[in-house]
């Protein structure tokens, strides 16, 4: 497939935003359930929520460039019963709204306990809004992954690994952003987030490598014989019905040499996983905010490369009909 930068920015940015929110809420839960020293710096949650919603807003903005008719984008919420894309169109603003409310509740200090759990834990509005946001965030991860995972013709994508990878990479980048933010704001959470970010980066790396291995073994379901229905092992295209290319030659081919695609694979494995991992481990022992911020920046570049490769790697069966211009 031809990698479209609008979609690359959409999926990477909203993933990081979602992951950042999950990081904020994980910190709050650990603190509220007294699993670590309590945090009272609501500023961190407010700014974190603003960044999370901001990342998702930029992603949403980028996605409009993918559309031929952005002014009709509102229509795309119509077919949520059948279309994962439609579901994402609903889930994305829902998650942004829920996270905004979560941030607002922290800003306005809605932390008076509404009721107390049997264990003695006090439940307040921020916790409930956080739970609601968590639900929308995971829904959005599933919707985004399933947009690609549900297309059975793209065998490289048609796997649960697509959803798992979108989720894990979003969480890895989001927790890395949380690490950088807390280091910059000098909260006590830096190490806490760094450890989580390391964990998710390792998990994301493992599952991404798993999908690389899986995709390497794929046997295409269609071949020239089933494409034109002639049972002969040696079929060669002579003409594809157009001399100067068509939508079919532009949308489904990345147009790069095999070496370029292969290099992109190594680049994303190093930039999205290995370098950020080293920096995050390094940041455990250092107090400077520069290191985690660098980890975030490098990881984001790596994720752009990863998403580019994700698209370029997918081989559409329609390409069988478009192998030779003339």
């Amino acid at each position: 497939m031809h990698p479209a930068f609008s979609v690359i920015f959409l999926t990477t940015l909203i993933g990081a935003g979602q992951g950042l929110f999950l990081a904020l809420f994980t910190g709050q839960i650990f603190s509220q359930f007294k699993l670590m020293p309590e945090q009272h710096d609501s500023n961190f949650y407010v700014i974190g929520s603003i960044i999370a919603v901001g990342l998702m807003a930029i992603g949403l903005f980028a996605s409009f460039f993918h559309l031929g008719h952005p002014e009709r984008a509102w229509r795309s919420a119509a077919k949520w019963k059948t279309s994962w894309l439609s579901r994402e169109v609903i889930a994305l603003p829902a998650a942004m709204g829920a996270i905004s409310l979560y941030g607002a509740a922290h800003y306005f200090g809605f932390t008076t306990p509404l009721f107390t759990m049997p264990g003695g834990t006090e439940i307040d509005a921020t916790l409930l809004l956080g739970l609601a946001s968590t639900f929308t965030v995971y829904t959005l991860f599933i919707c985004t992954g399933m947009i690609y995972g549900c297309i059975k013709f793209l065998q490289e994508w048609h796997s649960p690994l697509t959803v798992i990878n979108f989720t894990l990479m979003g969480m890895a980048s989001g927790f890395a952003v949380a690490t950088a933010l807390s280091a910059y704001m000098q909260t006590d959470l830096t190490k806490f987030y760094a450890v989580w970010a390391i964990l998710f980066t390792v998990l994301a790396f493992v599952f991404r490598v798993l999908s690389l291995v899986r995709n390497k073994k794929i046997k295409p379901k269609s071949d020239m014989r089933s494409a034109i229905g002639v049972n002969h092992p040696n079929i060669r295209q002579m003409a594809q019905g157009s001399m100067g290319g068509s939508f079919n030659t532009r949308e489904y081919f990345h147009g790069k040499k095999a070496g370029f695609v292969r290099n992109m694979k190594y680049i994303f494995l190093v930039l999205a996983f290995i370098v950020p991992l080293a920096l995050l481990v390094f940041s455990l022992g250092a107090s400077s905010w520069v290191i985690p911020v660098a980890a975030v920046g490098i990881q984001y570049l790596g994720l752009i490369a990863e998403r580019w490769y994700f698209f370029a790697d997918a081989n559409h069966p329609q390409n069988l009909y478009y192998q030779q211009i003339s």
Partner: peptide
Amino acid sequence: IGCKYCSWACP
């Protein structure tokens, strides 16, 4: 809306 998603879903 010209999102091209249907074209991805046509083999």
